[in-house]
Design a protein around this nucleic acid. Structure first.
Lengths: 125, 125
DNA sequence: TTGATATATGAACACATGTTCAAATGAATA
DNA sequence: TATTCATTTGAACATGTGTTCATATATCAA
């Protein structure tokens, strides 16, 4: 690894051809990464992440979430729509209320792995 | 659960007070969620996610990444700076090259949990 | 030092995104 | 049916964000 023997001058820069070959072989398909980025993007907004985290504790109706976040239920509903469409949350209607919950356990797992990472970075350096 | 007994009409909407109390008790601190959203935001861009995924396979220098992505090294360098500042990646200098790698194993774990989720959603419904 | 290679950075621009406001839909109640 | 409550939706607006272009810094070679 790090061997200079495989450096090729083929473009404007000298690239490590063995490294690139390794990456190209083991990388998942481009489309999958694009979809995955779309998926992760949803965790990257504080409002949505709070919703997801709250739903990992208990299912909630829209006005509960709205009250909890201190935000308009319109804003909340817009975000829920996105989370719904990308299947991060599911919902059930009960009378006038619509109760939301996490779609599956991966969502919660991702959040907690992220929290773990941050905790380690804070304490352990 | 779902008991109507704890519905309070205190604002414009009828909120489930027991639910909110549960959430407020078990929710992590607001600042932590904000930081976590900042953290996840970095996974939510295709360019950055490709970089992170590639680095989970092998360390790479900037021009390798640039070549692999088919993007300018300026664009790549800008993204690496962000990933560096948020400690998702670390780097070491070797002559004129700067080699980047993932900061710790959580990064890879998050990516693969996400891939798992997507795989299940595609096949299992 | 001078020139070439590799990376980093600042400013500008185009585009994406979250919230607000107003209005519409759906369900329960009178 | 008409009214109220809960939620959804569309359009507009302001803000954020990723890339490009030009330039600066850093390392090595001559």
């Amino acid at each position: 690894m790090g061997n200079d023997a495989n450096i090729d001058i083929c473009g404007d820069y000298a690239v490590h051809e063995d490294t690139l070959e390794n990456i190209r072989t083991n990388m998942v398909k481009d489309q999958a990464v694009n979809d995955l980025a779309e998926f992760f993007r949803l965790f990257g907004d504080a409002t949505r992440l709070k919703i997801l985290h709250a739903l990992s504790i208990s299912e909630m109706c829209v006005c509960d979430i709205s009250e909890f976040l201190g935000m308009s239920q319109s804003a909340v509903s817009h975000q829920l729509k996105v989370l719904r469409q990308c299947r991060l949350v599911k919902y059930r209607r009960e009378g006038r209320n619509v109760f939301y919950s996490l779609d599956d356990e991966h969502i919660q797992q991702i959040i907690y792995t992220g929290l773990e990472h941050m905790l380690e970075k804070q304490t352990g350096g």
